[in-house]
Design a protein around this nucleic acid. Structure first.
Lengths: 235, 235
DNA sequence: AATGGTGTAAACATGATGTAAACACACAAG
DNA sequence: CTTGTGTGTTTACATCATGTTTACACCATT
């Protein structure tokens, strides 16, 4: 998959939390951590969590209570983290529609295999939900993030190279905010910028010739001398 | 759930098979049984199986071989039935994308809870597929998802290999959205993509020679340099 | 005016893509 | 078992797209 899955680890015990996060980070997942229900809700509200590793024993809210709360509003993947002695609660958790549980101490290899399989299922179900188009509009233009194409106000399709597209979407997504070359180059490739690097300038130039009415006097992509560029198109 | 889920129990041992079937039947599921790979294939070919309980030890084909075979062509739920001594194979099974395993003798309550949760996920992913048209049309062509065949605008039947079909259906189902090679290879087989893997490129090439008016200048399947491919046929 | 930043044409280098051919493997037929 | 067939995968190489560099003119700021 192009996008890394986002995993939320909820555990009050620092040791297990770090261990879990470590495993997942090594595998290239994006990991967030929470110590309690409040922090969990805060991260979960971001709306892009794919899998929750949820400790069944927490100081404030019971893990099972949180499980119920989350399940009520979401089909996110949930794996309960349990101790050796939680036998009964494990079954209860499964019956409350937790997808799985692991027992501390866990086998990393099995844990990762299970997580991966579950993520596959979660994502498969989510695709149709994200099916709505992601389109950024400005000054009559529309930039389709799925199609990776740009439509002119007249309706014609304008072809953009990968670099031009990355640059334009970064600018439009941050419209009104000045982005440095360093910043833009990071969006483009993941690369450090040094003062002799003119890549961004050249690409901005090519972009202007494609979308500006008068490329010599740009109105959409403005230069901020000594800093970088800023997108000033109206919505 | 409106329709009863269909569960296929594959086990050569009569005792475990009957035990498993019994549990599921009590819960109101529709259960089929198979003693070996051949019988399994026969039932599975019916196309309406939601969950397979697959013994990891079978007389003829290895359970893992069957697992691989099924996974190659389907996202059906799979729970491996293992003995106490199969520790290593359990992990291997998970890594071959089995959803779960149970250890004989199993706790009926846990088994049923796990099955129920998995069925929920399997069905969630399947609903949109069934709800959608089973025939996808574009530019005069029609792709029959049940028949796994393609009809040309002139009415002739064009033969597609499994790989070509998987690729084309993935592209058409996501028309207008750019799919990465990673993405496409995942539809094709369940396999990770690495930059040296040219399988997708070759298959796309073969596909183009079958459906494009001018394969040298493709209009249906467009290349998005540095990203992947996108289907741009009109409906 | 001096200095460093920016625009841009042109050349360049490199990695991505198209594709033929060889290969590997499973399966079916003899 | 052996042979043949279909098909996915790998290899190899020609070609292409495009990001990057270079060079120089021009501009902005001091």
């Amino acid at each position: 998959m192009t996008n890394k899955a986002h995993i939320l680890v909820v555990d009050d015990d620092l040791t297990s939390r770090v261990a879990l996060s470590g495993y997942f980070e090594t595998e290239g997942y994006r990991v967030s951590e929470a110590e309690d229900g409040a922090q969990m809700r805060s991260v979960f509200a971001g709306g892009d969590v794919d899998l929750i590793m949820l400790d069944i024993r927490l100081p404030d809210d019971d893990g099972l209570t949180l499980l119920k709360e989350v399940r009520k509003q979401s089909d996110v993947g949930i794996i309960m983290v349990t101790g050796r002695t939680d036998e009964v609660d494990r079954i209860v958790a499964l019956e409350m529609e937790a997808d799985d549980y692991v027992i501390k101490p866990f086998s990393p290899r099995e844990l990762l295999a299970r997580s991966k399989n579950l993520l596959r299922r979660v994502k498969a179900a989510r695709v149709p939900a994200i099916a709505d188009e992601r389109v950024l509009s400005f000054a009559g233009w529309s930039l389709d993030l799925d199609k990776r194409g740009l439509q002119s106000p007249e309706g014609g399709e304008v072809r953009l190279t990968r670099g031009e597209f990355e640059l334009l979407s970064a600018l439009v997504e941050n419209k009104g905010r000045v982005l440095t070359r360093d910043n833009l180059l990071d969006h483009l490739n993941h690369r450090e910028w040094d003062p002799s690097d003119r890549t961004v300038d050249v690409l901005i130039g090519r972009l202007r010739r494609k979308i500006e009415v008068n490329p010599k006097d740009p109105s959409l992509i403005r230069t901020v001398h000594g800093i970088g560029y800023v997108f000033t198109g109206v919505h």
